[in-house]
Design a protein around this nucleic acid. Structure first.
Lengths: 333, 333
DNA sequence: TTGAAAGCGCTACCAA
DNA sequence: TTGGTAGCGCTTTCAA
């Protein structure tokens, strides 16, 4: 087990050329006799030889590395997304280089860095990217896929939940169950997720003739949801149902309501978005709209592989419908 | 914005040698006149040139990439750890290659893979590693640091919370507040964290003359904590205080108690370990022992950098003391 | 089926 | 302060 073993040393000891060693370790493994292959493998084993991935990238100009940019790893929805991506990518023999960006930071800042690594593709979660930079990347042959974000840029592919439809669904659910004093707690401003859920919600309310819905900001955090709810409770006409743009705010909302002596759903109904594991905890039993993460990830990887193989394939925009997950935070009036 | 710009093209257009371009982009930037530097930078800018990190690794035999192996990204304690590591490593200009391993899977399986990438170092969180493999890595000059795991292997450095001391502290707290029918909910078997917390807890109870403490398994999950608590409640002598080896199980415990009509802490006290953000949520207000993650991460990085700079520096084992975080899930009898 | 040799795009040493 | 040049460890033609 010496310091660094190269294919040359293996070749010498096995009495073959270095090219042959290389062939043995190229997974496409072209013509090489079984006898020599066995010999080479045996020597490699003895020496503890592992092909140098860096050198391989160098010659093939292919890194087999996918970059993931993720802000907000801490936010309960994303760890699962990340783990799933990792598993799936490891399954198809790709490594993951992970970058964070603070939420308000555009990823333009870290892109130069990303570019240096000759990544096969870049998956961007919860961060924004100027369309100018997107163009640079696509010119460089590095496909970018936005996850859980939507854009109108023809240079970028994107996969997200169908947030507008989800918002509309919530409107239907709350009206159908007899609620009339509705409120909406928004997430982080200028994120397409929050905006789209809001848009869907209000457009459907409007269609069904309901106006005057209150609104507050919850910044996609537990604390934010808690405070937003307190604000709503202080209004002249407090709500009988609250739609929070994500689950974590909804949990904050429930706790705020209880702290004020109100029962959920008896006094006030609460509905969230995401269907994170905590939504099912018995303390909350939150009714919510699911994000079908596994499906979203499948789409993302499919688009990615397509783009890697056919760099000029057109960009795609996928929206994955979510489902209503009924628990017991919405009452039937 | 052409496909791939190399330093040679920049050199030609700037009328200098390729070496000079390289010098300009070497951050140690040795002797190169200001005039040429400006010229080179300008041309590079125009061409959209970014040095090829792969090629750089190739010549320097230094990747500036740190590997992190993490199982259980989903478990609420780890996302914060991961994010913090990412931030700190990005600050010192290192990239992160992330690997997952399922909890029961030894990381020996993915190590061959890891080895191929010539990583500067490997940080292993929540996964076990045979000491044989550890020796291989250290022979290859790739330092390994275990985070939140402890071992007796002299080839490995490790940083963890002082779990034994934490367990002892919990014993003191519960006895001092007058509890006498104690119970312990363990985490995942054969993890050092759960075992050490358990050991500290029981040894201190023993020292103070208390025996007969009940025990159940919670597998470090919310559901596990919930069910373990139900089991404990069914015993002939149900506990008046439950120590859960991590917070997430403690939250499950609280919900289980409430579901059975018991009040926390009035009827039963609950104490956790970790101090995850949720412990502070108003629905729970969990008293717990903190893991001082930021300090643990500082230690880890410090050891890592030391090992990278002086490969033969001795391995270290750091234990970071946690603090009692008093909220309101433990009553004063 | 195998070997020789030319790169991949950089860094780093040696000369000038 | 600069340029020339020899690698880094592989993959991939081209010949044998």
């Amino acid at each position: 087990m010496n310091k660094k073993v190269t294919s040359i040393e293996v070749a010498e000891l096995a009495g073959v050329s270095q090219s042959t060693v290389s062939r043995v370790f190229s997974n496409n493994s072209p013509n090489v006799s079984n006898k020599t292959r066995q010999r080479v493998l045996k020597v490699a084993e003895e020496l503890g030889y592992q092909p140098n991935a860096i050198a391989r990238m160098m010659s093939t100009r292919q890194s087999n590395i996918v970059g993931i940019v993720m802000a907000n790893i801490t936010s309960p929805f994303y760890p699962y997304v990340l783990e799933k991506f990792l598993q799936e990518l490891q399954n198809i023999e790709r490594q993951v280089l992970l970058f964070t960006a603070s939420e308000n930071q555009s990823i333009d800042d870290i892109l130069p860095l990303v570019l240096q690594y000759q990544l096969d593709a870049l998956i961007v979660t919860s961060a924004t990217l100027s369309s100018e930079l997107a163009k640079v990347c696509s010119a460089r042959g590095m496909p970018i896929i936005l996850f859980n974000r939507s854009v109108n840029d023809p240079n970028m592919s994107a996969v997200s939940a169908d947030n507008v439809a989800g918002g509309r669904l919530v409107a239907n659910v709350l009206l159908d169950t007899g609620h009339r004093r509705l409120a909406f707690v928004a997430g982080v401003h200028n994120t397409s997720t929050s905006y789209d859920r809001e848009r869907g919600f209000f457009s459907r309310l409007h269609e069904r003739g309901y106006e005057g819905t209150q609104q507050a900001d919850g910044h996609y955090t537990y604390e934010g949801g808690y405070r937003a709810t307190e604000t709503l409770l202080r209004s002249v006409n407090p709500p009988d149902a609250i739609f929070c743009a994500n689950d974590i705010m909804a949990l904050g909302a429930i706790d705020a309501l209880r702290a004020h002596g109100l029962r959920v759903p008896h006094d006030v109904s609460v509905i969230g978005f995401d269907n994170i594991p905590m939504a099912g905890w018995s303390a909350y039993q939150l009714t919510t709209i699911s994000q079908e993460v596994d499906i979203m990830i499948q789409h993302t990887l499919q688009i990615m592989l397509e783009k890697i193989e056919y760099p000029h394939s057109p960009s795609r925009l996928e929206r994955v419908a979510g489902n209503l997950v009924i628990r017991s935070s919405v009452r039937n009036v």
